[in-house]
Design a protein around this nucleic acid. Structure first.
Length: 1070
RNA sequence: GGGCCAAUAGCUCAAUCAGGUUGAGCGCCACUCUGAUAAGGUGGAGGUUCUCGGUUCAAAUCCGAGUUGGCCCA
C-alpha cells in the first residue's frame, strides 16, 4: 500500500475486507507474522476441536474469535504461540448423517454395505464438513494454522489416544465390566450420560400389585416402564419409612394392599377404591424379607427365581413418591444394578442391544420393548396384577443423535476407573487457574467429585478402535485379566501376526479388526468396540503435538498454557482432558482455562433451528462486516456469562469503526498536500512545538495502552475494547480532532501544523496496532495507508505497544477531564441562554471549586475561549464567591445516616431544599432547623454546598465522575459587535451551503451578493464584509447576474430576510 | 428433581465482594451544528434495581423463599 494513498470515502467493510484478504495473500501475512515470533518464548495454546458438523454457528464464531484475539495478542507480545486448529471428526453424529444419506435403518444395513466402505463414507463426509468450517473461520479473519490442522481421524492422532489409554491401562485403571448403561436401540450402542438428551414425553404410568407369599395382600409398585417388569428381581423400601397394609374395597370386592403411609391416599385414588381400612402398620425395615410372586411368572418362565430373588430389600434410592415401594430390576436401572450387585444377585437382562427381547423373556421374545408395553399391561391385568393404568408426561432420556428413546440395559463395557484416582483428580484441579474462578471451585469441582467411572466403549464403527486384544478363549473370565493393550503403531506392527507397515497403516476398525496377536501359544483378537468420541479430544494436549510420534515438542511444550471454551465443556472437554491427563500422566494437561458462555438470541433464548431464531455469522458479516461482528462478540464478557446477540449492538460497532475511518481519512488530504513525512517529522522532532492538547492525547494513549494490557492479562478483552473504543471515539474523534482541525487547515507551513500531524499520525498508527487483534481487517488497511513502505507488511507483525513513560502525564489527563467538563457545561449554559455556538458571547465565568480546576482553566484560557466562542474567559478562584449566587447543600448519607438514624432521610431533603445566601454551616443549620421545626446540628463533613444559578445569567455546574467541581456562567448579552459577527457567521454558513449546492471546489473563487431586508442588520453585516469574503473565498461582494452558473436564494435568519446570490468567478469570466 | 450462573433504563452493562440520594454508552424524541457529513453538539423522556419476606437507622448490595432464563447433571 502506498502511504497516504486515496481511500474509500465512506467505510465500506465488504470492499475493505476483500482488499485485505488479497493483501494478506500477496505478502504471506500469516506466515510472516508467525515467523517473526518463531524465536520467542513458546506459548502452548490448544484449540478445543469443534465437531465437524458443517458450519460455524454464532457460538463457535465467538469461541474462535476469542482464541484469535489471544493468539494475536500473545504473538504481538513476542511469544511463539502454537495455533494448530483441531477438528473432532469421529463419532455417532457423523455415522447417523451418513446413514441418513445412504438410507440406512440400522446396523444390519451397515454390515451389508461393508465396514470398510462405510468408514470411507464417514471419512469423506467429515472431511467435507471440515472444509466448510475452515472457510467460515477464515472468513472472519481467524489466523490459525489452517494448512496443518490436527484431525482426530489421522493415524498419528489416533495413536495419541491409544497411547494415553495404554498408559491408563498400565496403571491398572482399565477394566471391563457389566454396567447398566443408556443404550440407544437404533444406534445399538451405549451412550455416555452427556449424550443423553432429556425431553418431555408421554409414557405409561401403571400401578402393579405383587402378591405376597405366605400372607394376605400385595405390594404396590409404580413404574413408567412396563417392559422392565419381566426382569423384576426384588422390591426396594426405605428402612425408616412408615408403611401400611389397608383393606381396600372397590366394586364390592376387597383386597389388602401395602404402600407407604404417605402415599396411601394417592394410590387409593388412582385405583378408584371406594373405601379402606388400615389393617397393618410397619416400617420399611420390618418388610424386609417378605416374599412375593412375580406378576408375569407364567409369561416369563426364566424370570429371576434364584435364592433371595422376589423379596423385599432396603435401598437408598427409595423416595416417598407414588407408592414408596420400588420395582427393582438390576438388569435395567442403574441404581437397581448397583444394589443388585451389593446383594450379590446374578443379573437378568432379557433385552438385546437393539431393544428386542431375547428368548429369556418368554412369550415376549422378538418384540421391541417399547412396543411390548401394551401387551404387558394387558397381561398384568389378566393376571389381576394391574391396580391402575394411565399415562404420565415426564422428562425421559433420548439419543442425542437420532432422538430415539433410550433404554437402560446391562451390557459388557470397558471403563477407565476414574473413581480410583478421584483424589488425584481433585488435587490436579488446583494446578489450573480458571477465569472465572468460580467455574473451577464450584461447578467443575462438584462434577469431578460425583463423576462415575468413564465408560469408553461404543459398539459402533466410526471411531478410534479400542486397542485391546483379548484371548480368543476366555471362558467365564473377564477380558481385562489377560488383555493386551497396544500403545503405538510401532508396537502394533511388532506384535501382530500379520505383516504391516506402521508408517502407512490406517488404524481404523476395518483394518485392525483383522489383526491378531499370538503370544505364548495364545491367540488374541481385538475387541470390536471403538472409543467414546470424548476420548478422542481428551488427548488433544499431546495429540496436537503429534506425540508419541514426536517426543521433542511434547517435552518442550506440554502441558497446555491456555485453553478457551464454553461452559458446556465443564462436563466435556475440560473434564475429559483432566480425566485422561490424570489417568495417563498423573497431571492436569492445562494451566489456564478461560470459560465463556453461549451465544443466545436477542431475547436471551437459545438459538435453535426449530425455533427459527438462529443468526448465521455470514449474515452478520454481510450486513455489518467481519470486524464489526468480531468487535460485537468480543465486547461481551468472556468469563462465564452468556451473550445475547443484538443487531443494534452490531450496528453500534460498525458506527464506531466508521468514526475511526473518518478520523483516519480526515488528515490524509492535508498530509498528502503538505508532503508530510512521518519518518522525518517524528514526535521527537516536533517535541518543542507540541501543544498541550497534543501532549494530552499522547498521555491518553499511554493510559489506554496500560488499561488494555492489564485487562488482556486477565482475559477481559471486552474491557480492553471498551477502553480503546472510548479513546478513539470520545478522545481522538470528538475532542482532539475537533480541536486540531483548524491547525490543519492553515495554508502555510507552520510548526503547530507539523506538531499536529506528527501527533495524530502517531496516535492513529498506535491505535491500529492496538485494534489489530480485535478488528484485523480495518486496522490492516489503515496501518498500511499510514505506514506505506516503512511499516511491516502487515499490522499483525507489530509489537504490542508498551507504555511510553515519556508521554505519561496523569495530571494533564485529569486537567483535560475538567476542561472538557467545563466546555460541556458551557455548551449547556449557552443553550439555556438561547445563544448558539456560532454567536460569540462577551464573557464566560468559570467558578472553580478547587485549585486543580483553576490551574487547568488558567493554562487553557485560549482553548476555552475558542471552544466556547467567548470573547473572554474569567476565573473565580476557589474560596471566592460569585456575589449573586444562592446555595443549597447535598448530604453525605454515610455520615448523616449513623448520626441521625431514622431522621436522616428528612434531613437530607431539607438540605436539598434549603436556599441560603452564603455557603456556611451556620446558615445551613438555620435554614434546615427552620424547615424541620427542630434544632439540627450538622458537621461540615456531612454536607457539600451547591450553587444555585441566578436568573439573569445562564449557569451550569460541571463535575468529574459525579463530584461537583465548579460552575460555568455564560453571559449572553448582546452588543453591536457581537451581533455583527453573529449575523456575518449566519451569512457565511449559508453561503457555504450554497457553494456545496453548486458543487464547487474548496479552492474555487466566487462573487457574492448580499442584501439584507432589515437596515440595521444590513449595516452590521456590512461591518464584517472582509471576514465574509475571506471565509467563503469571495473575490468581490458585488451584484450577481442571474445566469446559468449563478445561484440565488432567500433565507430567513431568525426572522430577518437575507437574500444571497453567488456565482463562480470562472463562470462569470467566461 | 439436583448443582452452578444470571436478572438494574428499550438494548449492553457499571455500581454488589467491604450496605449510604443508582450511573455510563447505545437507541429513541426534541433542539442544534454544517470545511470528518450515513458524522458532530446540547437537552429530554425512560428504573416498584425480577417477586415476596427477613436483618438494619439505611438494602440493587447481606440472608431466606420463589419466578424467569442459560448451562450441566438425573
Amino acid at each position: 500500500m502506498s502511504r497516504f494513498g486515496e481511500v474509500d470515502e465512506g467505510y465500506d467493510p465488504q470492499a475493505l475486507e476483500r482488499r485485505v484478504f488479497e493483501h494478506w495473500e500477496a505478502v504471506d501475512a500469516y506466515e510472516q507474522t508467525r515467523e517473526r515470533a518463531a524465536d520467542g518464548e513458546p506459548y502452548f495454546f490448544v484449540d478445543g476441536p469443534p465437531y465437524t458438523s458443517g458450519a460455524a454457528h454464532m457460538g463457535t464464531t465467538w469461541n474462535k474469535s476469542l482464541k484469535d484475539v489471544y493468539i494475536r495478542y500473545l504473538r504481538m507480545q513476542g511469544y511463539d504461540v502454537t495455533d494448530r486448529p483441531g477438528y473432532d471428526m469421529h463419532g455417532l453424529p457423523i455415522e447417523t448423517k451418513v446413514e441418513e444419506k445412504l438410507g440406512f435403518e440400522n446396523k444390519k444395513d451397515i454390515e451389508a454395505f461393508g465396514e470398510e466402505a462405510f468408514i470411507d463414507e464417514c471419512k469423506a463426509y467429515a472431511e467435507e464438513q471440515l472444509e466448510a468450517m475452515r472457510e467460515d473461520f477464515e472468513s472472519f479473519g481467524v489466523w490459525m494454522d489452517w494448512d496443518d490442522p490436527y484431525k482426530t481421524l489421522n493415524p498419528e492422532y489416533m495413536e495419541a489416544a491409544w497411547w494415553g489409554f495404554a498408559k491408563a491401562a498400565e496403571r491398572g485403571l482399565v477394566v471391563q465390566g457389566k454396567r447398566s448403561i443408556s443404550q440407544c436401540p437404533r444406534c445399538e450402542t451405549g451412550l455416555a450420560n452427556n449424550e443423553v438428551e432429556y425431553t418431555d414425553v408421554e409414557d405409561p404410568s401403571i400401578y402393579v400389585t405383587f402378591d405376597l407369599v405366605d400372607r394376605e395382600g400385595a405390594l404396590v409398585v409404580w413404574t413408567t416402564t412396563p417392559w422392565t417388569i419381566p426382569a423384576n428381581t426384588f422390591v426396594a423400601v426405605a428402612p425408616d419409612l412408615e408403611y401400611v397394609g389397608v383393606r381396600a374395597e372397590r366394586d364390592g370386592e376387597s383386597e389388602v394392599l401395602y404402600v407407604a403411609e404417605a402415599c396411601l391416599e394417592e394410590v387409593l385414588r388412582e385405583g378408584r377404591y371406594d373405601d379402606y381400612e388400615v389393617v397393618d402398620e410397619r416400617t420399611g425395615e420390618e418388610l424386609v424379607g417378605w416374599a412375593y410372586e412375580h406378576p408375569l411368572a407364567d409369561e416369563v418362565p426364566d424370570h429371576p427365581s434364584h435364592e433371595g430373588a422376589l423379596e423385599v430389600y432396603t435401598a437408598d434410592y427409595v423416595e416417598t413418591d407414588r407408592t414408596g415401594l420400588v420395582h427393582s430390576a438390576p438388569g435395567h436401572g442403574e441404581e437397581d444394578f448397583e444394589r443388585g450387585r451389593e446383594l450379590g444377585f446374578p443379573i437378568f437382562c432379557p433385552v438385546d442391544g437393539d431393544g428386542v427381547y431375547t428368548a429369556e423373556a418368554g412369550v415376549y421374545e422378538g418384540e421391541f420393548v417399547k412396543e411390548a408395553n401394551e401387551r404387558i399391561i394387558d397381561d398384568l391385568e389378566t393376571n389381576g396384577a394391574l391396580l391402575a393404568s394411565g399415562t404420565v408426561s415426564h422428562s425421559y432420556g433420548h439419543c442425542w443423535r437420532c432422538d430415539r428413546g433410550i433404554i437402560q440395559i446391562v451390557t459388557d463395557q470397558w471403563f477407565i476407573t476414574v473413581t480410583d484416582v478421584k483424589d488425584d483428580l481433585l488435587e490436579n484441579i488446583e494446578d489450573s487457574e480458571w477465569f472465572p474462578d468460580w467455574a473451577r471451585d464450584n461447578r467443575f469441582r462438584d462434577f469431578v467429585e460425583e463423576a462415575p467411572d468413564w465408560n469408553v466403549s461404543r459398539q459402533r464403527y466410526w471411531g478410534i478402535p479400542i486397542p485391546i486384544w483379548t484371548p480368543e478363549e476366555t471362558p467365564d473370565g473377564r477380558g481385562d485379566e489377560d488383555m493386551i493393550v497396544v500403545a503405538t503403531r510401532e508396537e502394533l506392527a511388532e506384535r501382530v501376526d500379520q505383516e504391516i507397515d506402521p508408517e502407512t497403516i490406517d488404524i481404523h476398525k476395518d483394518t485392525v479388526d483383522d489383526l491378531t496377536i499370538t503370544e505364548d501359544g495364545v491367540t488374541y483378537t481385538r475387541i470390536p468396540d471403538v472409543f467414546d468420541v470424548w476420548l478422542d479430544s481428551s488427548v488433544a494436549s499431546w495429540g496436537t503435538l503429534d506425540f508419541p510420534e514426536d517426543q521433542e515438542r511434547f517435552d518442550e511444550l506440554w502441558p497446555a498454557d491456555l485453553i478457551i471454551e464454553a461452559h458446556d465443556q465443564t462436563r466435556g472437554w475440560f473434564w475429559s482432558q483432566l480425566g485422561m491427563g490424570t489417568t495417563a500422566l498423573g497431571e492436569v494437561p492445562y494451566d489456564t482455562v478461560v470459560m465463556h458462555g453461549h451465544a443466545l438470541d436477542e431475547d436471551g433464548r437459545k438459538m435453535s433451528k426449530s425455533v427459527g431464531n438462529v443468526v448465521e455469522p455470514h449474515e452478520a458479516i454481510d450486513r455489518h462486516g467481519a470486524d464489526a461482528m468480531r468487535l460485537f462478540l468480543l465486547s461481551a464478557n468472556p468469563q462465564g456469562d452468556d451473550m445475547r446477540f443484538s443487531w443494534e449492538g452490531m450496528r453500534t460497532m460498525e458506527n464506531h469503526l466508521r468514526t475511526l475511518w473518518n478520523v483516519f481519512r480526515f488528515p490524509l488530504p492535508y498530509m498528502r498536500l503538505d508532503g508530510f513525512d512521518p519518518a522525518e517529522t517524528t514526535l521527537e522532532a516536533v517535541d518543542d512545538d507540541l501543544e498541550r492538547l497534543d501532549e494530552w492525547v499522547l498521555a491518553r494513549l499511554q493510559s489506554t495502552v496500560e488499561t488494555m494490557t492489564d485487562e488482556l492479562e486477565v482475559f477481559r478483552q471486552d474491557q480492553a475494547i471498551e477502553a480503546l473504543l472510548s479513546f478513539i471515539v470520545d478522545d481522538v474523534s470528538r475532542f482532539y480532532v475537533q480541536a486540531v482541525r483548524e491547525r490543519m487547515w492553515e495554508e502555510t507551513d507552520s510548526a503547530s501544523k507539523r506538531a499536529a500531524y506528527a501527533t495524530l499520525y502517531h496516535v492513529l498508527e498506535r491505535v491500529t496496532v492496538l485494534l489489530a487483534p480485535f478488528a484485523p481487517f480495518v486496522s490492516e488497511e489503515i496501518y498500511g495507508t499510514l505506514t506505506g513502505e516503512d511499516g511491516h507488511d502487515t499490522v499483525h507483525m507489530s509489537e504490542w505497544p508498551a507504555v511510553e513513560e515519556y508521554w505519561v502525564d496523569e495530571e494533564l489527563e485529569t486537567d483535560v477531564v475538567a476542561l472538557r467538563a467545563i466546555e460541556e457545561a458551557g455548551a449547556h449554559a449557552r443553550q439555556q441562554a438561547g445563544r448558539k455556538l456560532r454567536w460569540p458571547v462577551p464573557r464566560v465565568v468559570v467558578a472553580a471549586d478547587d485549585d486543580d480546576v483553576a490551574a487547568a482553566v488558567e493554562r487553557h484560557t485560549d482553548l476555552l475561549c475558542e471552544r466556547l466562542n467567548a470573547r473572554e474567559v474569567e476565573l473565580v478562584s476557589p474560596g471566592d464567591h460569585w456575589g449573586e449566587l444562592d446555595y443549597s447543600a447535598n448530604a453525605d448519607m454515610s455520615l448523616l445516616g449513623p448520626a441521625f438514624g431514622g431522621d436522616a432521610g428528612r434531613i437530607m431533603n431539607a438540605l436539598n431544599e434549603a436556599r441560603i445566601d452564603d455557603p456556611t454551616l451556620e446558615s445551613l443549620e438555620r435554614a434546615v432547623s427552620e424547615s424541620l421545626g427542630e434544632e439540627i446540628s450538622l458537621e461540615s463533613e456531612m454536607v457539600s454546598f451547591v450553587t444555585e444559578t441566578p436568573d439573569d445569567i445562564a449557569g451550569t455546574p460541571f463535575g468529574v465522575e459525579g463530584d461537583d467541581r465548579g460552575v460555568v456562567y455564560v453571559d449572553a448579552s448582546l452588543t453591536d459587535d457581537i451581533e455583527s459577527e453573529g449575523y456575518a457567521r449566519e451569512v457565511i454558513r449559508r453561503v457555504q451551503e450554497m457553494r456545496k449546492e453548486l458543487d464547487l471546489d474548496v479552492e474555487e473563487q466566487i462573487t457574492l451578493e448580499v442584501s439584507v431586508a432589515d437596515e440595521r442588520i444590513a449595516d452590521l453585516v456590512a461591518e464584517r464584509e472582509d471576514l465574509i469574503a475571506d471565509e467563503v473565498r469571495a473575490e468581490a461582494l458585488t451584484g450577481v447576474e442571474d445566469g446559468d452558473a449563478s445561484h440565488r436564494k432567500t433565507w430567513d435568519v431568525d426572522g430577518v430576510e437575507i437574500e444571497l446570490a453567488i456565482s463562480p468567478v470562472s463562470a462569470s469570466a467566461a
